[in-house]
Nucleic acid binder design. Structure first.
Lengths: 189, 189
DNA sequence: TCCCCAGGAAACCGATCGGTCTGCATCGCG
DNA sequence: CGCGATGCAGACCGATCGGTTTCCTGGGGA
């Protein structure tokens, strides 16, 4: 959709920041980011106020694509139950990829500790959006306690991606039964 | 129990490493660790081969105390269901503490990325031990699929402590119902 | 009293951090 | 052709990293 003859320096920086901080952590050096993006430090500091802001922008501008891969289409005609299960099927699929290291938004918050860090705020918001999606579907699906179910699903989401990320579990045959159990208990058809 | 007239330099280093890396992350400097422990760098490098080994030893030697606070006594006469719920009650209690920042073993693995790092190996083992405890209790409790239930409980454990650690959720009224639902579905009385 | 040495303080090492700045090559445009 | 804007390469800054080494003090044994 977006006309992309060739990515701008800004886009290349955002892409490099997303890739390298995900693979190596937020302590990756500015020099490495710029080299990977093919952009000089001079240009980077004209486009962004600081490394922190670059990281925050990187997370923020990937959010749309992230939810697009994770969430079902806004109105795909499927039931809330199916739409919720779709999200977890995506997680399980992503976890199978060789370069999967868990949810990047969770990782950033854990690595930064400081929740007032701009990137941490962005990550926090994205997590809140996912919980809101779950809550909306829970309500539509007639859950007895939509708030509770949404929090449970978020908990499973983060637990699953974290454990897959640290290779404590490969999620096979784990996520779907767990989510199904919670949906059943909540009365979501 | 342990005779502790005054902690040895080694013990002070392990304690400082545990405290500071938990609060500030694994990238805390060696100098800060030594200053907090009241030990010179010279002595530290006589006691430990490297900062990485200090960190690994810190996690390893805290493991016993950690499981002691988390798990019920080996043979307390309670049912498997109660013993499992005890673990999660402990998590919820810890999450209420002001200085709680999530499970340190999960955090270390996420921060280090490299799963071959000595500290990451220690953390991995401790997580495996917790899953083994869940599996043993699941078997004792007559779970239909003890392996599945153990993985589900580990998933909830990590999800809950991670989300509490990043302040995405305060766990109130969340963990107990979730675990209860999973135990019920698995047929654990 | 003298000696010895364990161990703390801190200098030092090369590398790297986030961030700034200079130098130069390349470009569009009149 | 000349000119100014752009932007990469990389030197440079002070601070800090993990790790090593030097210096010196204080206390215990002969």
């Amino acid at each position: 959709m977006t006309t992309e003859g060739k990515p701008s320096p800004r886009e290349r920086l955002l892409e490099a920041a997303a890739t390298l901080t995900y693979r190596d952590g937020v302590n990756i050096g500015v020099e490495a980011l710029c080299k990977a993006a093919g952009v000089s430090k001079r240009s980077m500091y004209q486009l962004f106020d600081s490394k922190d802001e670059l990281l925050a922008a990187s997370l923020r501008e990937r959010a749309a694509a992230y939810v697009a891969t994770l969430l079902p289409a806004a109105d795909d005609g499927r039931s809330p139950r199916e739409r919720i299960l779709h999200v977890f099927a995506q997680v399980e699929a992503q976890a199978g990829a060789p370069e999967f290291h868990g949810c990047r938004y969770l990782a950033v918050q854990i690595e930064l500790k400081d929740q007032s860090h701009p990137a941490s705020r962005v990550a926090h918001q994205i997590k809140a959006n996912l919980t809101a999606f779950f809550r909306a579907e829970a309500e539509r699906g007639g859950a007895g306690d939509p708030d509770l179910l949404a929090r449970q699903l978020s908990l499973v989401f983060d637990g699953a991606s974290a454990r897959a990320g640290i290779q404590a579990d490969n999620l096979t045959g784990l996520v779907a039964p767990t989510v199904t159990t919670l949906l059943d208990a909540a009365g979501v058809l």
